[in-house]
Computed example of a mutant assay.
Amino acid sequence: MVHDLKGKEARDWGVANREQVTGRYLDGQEPMSGLARSLKVSATWLTRQFDTWGVPRRDRAKASELRGPGVNPYKSR
């Protein structure tokens, strides 16, 4: 799902490909921050879109499982 878009075009692409974007998150393939990075959008924007779309987000425990042991949740990658 790599594209060369930025800004509004990247956000529009995310909206147009909603099923693919939400599917990757819901399948546990990657965390919200990683998904946002790959889409070239902010994590804040993506979180708000998921809320708008009614997509359930992971709680801290599930997010921690996905990150793996020993990963500081407060340190950006």
Rank of each mutant, 00 (worst) to 15 (best):
V2N: 13
H3I: 08
D4I: 10
D4V: 10
L5R: 04
L5V: 05
K6S: 10
G7N: 13
G7L: 06
E9F: 06
A10F: 11
A10L: 11
A10N: 14
A10Y: 14
R11S: 07
D12I: 15
W13I: 02
W13Y: 14
G14Y: 03
A16V: 04
A16T: 08
A16W: 09
A16F: 09
N17V: 07
N17Y: 11
R18T: 05
R18S: 10
E19V: 10
E19Q: 08
Q20D: 03
T22H: 10
T22E: 12
G23N: 06
R24I: 01
R24S: 01
Y25D: 08
L26P: 04
D27N: 14
D27A: 14
G28R: 00
G28P: 04
Q29F: 05
Q29S: 10
P31I: 01
P31T: 03
M32I: 15
G34K: 04
R37M: 12
R37E: 08
R37L: 14
S38A: 11
L39S: 03
L39R: 05
K40Y: 04
K40F: 03
V41I: 14
A43G: 12
A43K: 15
A43C: 12
T44N: 15
L46G: 04
T47Q: 13
R48G: 09
Q49D: 03
F50Y: 15
D51W: 09
D51A: 14
D51G: 11
T52D: 14
T52C: 11
T52R: 15
W53H: 04
W53G: 03
R57Q: 05
R57H: 02
D59V: 02
D59T: 03
A61L: 04
A61S: 06
K62C: 07
A63W: 02
S64D: 00
L66S: 00
G70K: 03
G70T: 09
V71Y: 01
Y74F: 13
Y74P: 02
K75V: 06
R77D: 05
R77V: 05
